[in-house]
Simulated scan of single mutants.
Amino acid sequence: MIQSRNITTDLALEAHEFVQEQEQAKGAVQQPDLPGVVVEHAGTQDIKITRVKVTSPTGEASIGKPMGNYVTLEVPRLKENDQVLYEDTCKALSQELVRILNLSEKSTILVVGLGNWNVTPDALGPKVTSGLMVTRHLLEYVPKQVDEGVRPVCAVAPGVLGITGIETGEIVKGIVERIKPDVVIAIDALASRRMERVNTTIQIADTGISPGSGVGNKRMEISLNTLGVPVIAIGVPTVVDAATMANDTIDLVIDSLLNEAQEDKQFYSMLKNIDRNEKYQLIQEVLEPYVGNLIVTPKEIDDVVDRIAKVIANGLNIALHQGITLDDVNRYLQ
């Protein structure tokens, strides 16, 4: 998580954008290329893919993210119940996962659903685990009944410290030491600094994760350093802080006034050109005495989290098992 001038985000893409905005505020004519950070764009209009690679300690220091790969899928209509878009997003997610996982035929995968299943915006991880094709037990006890290409996958939703009294990282470490997976995939809800990315963005990272860091509740890191095996993190921003929401709303109001104004366009243009991060800082200072660090989520979060959890689960199912299609997954889970 980057936290600078009280700007918080779990997304590497937003951390990169934040640093670019700071450089532009200093007078840069164009968005600067940051040393040690490589950005690549792909995808379609419906599914925009951005790959951020932090290649050096300089890049790590500039955007506040460990060296590694960060893939962001931005799907503005992800919240909608569109079957075609759902299938396309599952396939796009699985393709990016295959690129980053580097699995062998016999790789054992442990999927960890992080979060509190009693709090809907934080229940993404547990909901994903419930939609997975878990096969490790089948390959161990009835291997002849398992199709070729199916890898041993196991899953757990360990809860949170407030429920179990145990650090989640400690639980995961104990499981890893027992079953010795080749890779751990951790699913968690994230925080964003832009409203339009809430429930519409999926991030994949090969650098591990610190549960709760996006809302200032940092817990034990789950990574290669702590577990001894590679950790792939998948997250979706499900919440945004009140200051960000106010900041985005003010920008939308200014845009609307600027488009409709017959006079005073210069005044509205001046308001629009105020540095976004300075405006955020001011809003946060004004709100602090009244609401503190208020975290907000959309009212339709129940349906949206269910839908996104299904996308991630099936993206994982396709990526983790060779030759598996969405139809195969649906038959297996029936």
Results as ranks from 00 to 15, higher is better:
Leu110Pro: 01
Val111His: 02
Arg136Phe: 07
Val98Gly: 14
Leu138Phe: 14
Gly113Lys: 05
Met133Leu: 06
Gly125Asn: 11
Thr129Gln: 12
Trp117His: 07
Tyr141Ala: 09
Leu110Ser: 03
Ser104Gln: 15
Ser130Asp: 09
Pro121Glu: 02
Val119Phe: 13
Thr129Ser: 11
Val112Asp: 04
Thr135Leu: 08
Leu101Val: 05
Lys127Gly: 08
Thr120Val: 14
Val128Phe: 13
Val111Asp: 00
Leu110His: 03
Gly115Thr: 01
Arg99Val: 11
Ser104Trp: 08
Met133Phe: 04
His137Pro: 00
Met133Lys: 02
Asp122Pro: 02
Val98Ala: 15
Val112Arg: 00
Leu139Tyr: 07
Ala92Tyr: 15
Asn116Met: 04
Gly125Thr: 09
Leu110Tyr: 02
Leu139Cys: 05
Ile100Arg: 13
Val134Lys: 06
Glu140Phe: 13
Glu96Arg: 15
Val142Arg: 14
Ser104Pro: 09
Val134Ser: 07
Thr135Met: 08
Leu101Ser: 04
Val111Ile: 05
Leu103Val: 07
Leu114Ile: 03
Asp122Met: 05
Leu110Gln: 01
Cys90Ser: 08
Lys91Asn: 04
Leu101Pro: 04
Leu103Ala: 07
Arg99Gln: 14
Trp117Arg: 07
Asn116Ala: 03
Asn118Pro: 01
His137Trp: 10
Ser94Gln: 01
Thr129Met: 09
Pro126Ser: 08
Ala92Leu: 13
Thr129Glu: 11
Ala92Met: 14
Lys106His: 11
Val128Asn: 11
Leu103Ser: 07
Leu139Pro: 04
Leu101Asp: 04
Val98Lys: 15
Leu103Pro: 05
Gly113Ser: 02
Lys91Val: 00
Val142Trp: 15
Cys90Ile: 10
Arg99Ser: 14
Thr135Val: 08
Leu110Ala: 00
Val134Gln: 07
Ala123His: 03
Gly125Ile: 10
Thr120Ala: 11
Ile109Pro: 00
Val98Met: 15
Leu93His: 06
Ala123Lys: 03
Lys127Phe: 12
Ser107Glu: 03
Leu138Ile: 04
Asn118Gln: 11
Asn118Met: 10
Gly131Phe: 10
Ala123Trp: 04
His137Asp: 00
Leu139Ile: 01
Ser130Asn: 09
Val119Ser: 08
Arg136His: 05
Asn116Trp: 04
Leu97Ser: 15
Glu140Gly: 01
Leu114Thr: 02
Thr129Pro: 06
Ser94Ala: 01
Trp117Glu: 06
Arg99Trp: 15
Leu101Glu: 04
Leu103Met: 10
Glu96Phe: 14
Arg99Leu: 13
Leu110Asp: 04
Lys106Gln: 10
Glu96Tyr: 15
Pro126Val: 06
Ser107Leu: 03
Leu138Tyr: 13
Leu132Ser: 08
Glu96Ile: 12
Gly131Ala: 11
Ser104Cys: 10
Asn118Arg: 12
Leu138Thr: 00
Asp122Ala: 02
Ile100Asn: 13
Asn116Thr: 01
Leu110Ile: 01
Val128Thr: 10
Glu96Leu: 14
